[in-house]
Amino acid sequence: MTDPAYPLFYTFHFYLFGVIALASALAFVTRKSPVAAALWLVNVMFALAALYVMLDAHFIAAIQVLVYAGAIMVVFLFVIMLLNLGHPSEIADARGKWGKMAAGVLGLILLAEIAVVSGTRVRPEWVVPRGEMNRLLAEKGAIGVVADPLFTRYLLAFELTSILLLIAIVGAVALGRRSDHTTDPAEESAHAG
């Protein structure tokens, strides 16, 4: 499946980061310690960010590193630290025989699906001409490619996203607040004050 349009340098690095992502993902699901698993997942995200750059999505690669690897995974690590879950000994958490069999069967079905789908061809009329993304990047810059549709065609969705984030913040604070078992309203208001 060598494409003459891509130089060997590009192809080599594409496969390199692909193998890094796959190996890190496998290490991630097999680690016993949640901290080790989280750090392997960060490794997957960095490899994916490299692939995004190679696929002409520079801004998405930057926010992949900032938001996913930087913010979301730090929240995960904070929770692992807060709940003191870093000890692998107490987490013998692989499921029993039936869970593993279900996982194996479902995994094989999904892999078979990959094999079937990889034989299909995309319709030529759907494909934009080669180099279209490069032209857009040169014309609008890395951020403009995403920002232009985001603030025109998808403006409503963008605004709804901000409401979603507000709801998530309020919900997380309401759920995560330590509920005091005191029913004395005076003490309750003293806490609130």
Binding site: A21, L22, A25, L26, F28, V29, P34, A37, V44, F76, V79, I80, L85, I91, D93, A94, R95, G99, K100, A102, A103, G104, L106, G107, L110, L111, I114
Partner: peptide, 17 residues
Amino acid sequence: LFTIGVVGVLIRRNAII
């Protein structure tokens, strides 16, 4: 990667993982 994620959901019991 998606398949690895699905298998991970099915074989682990730690909610965070």
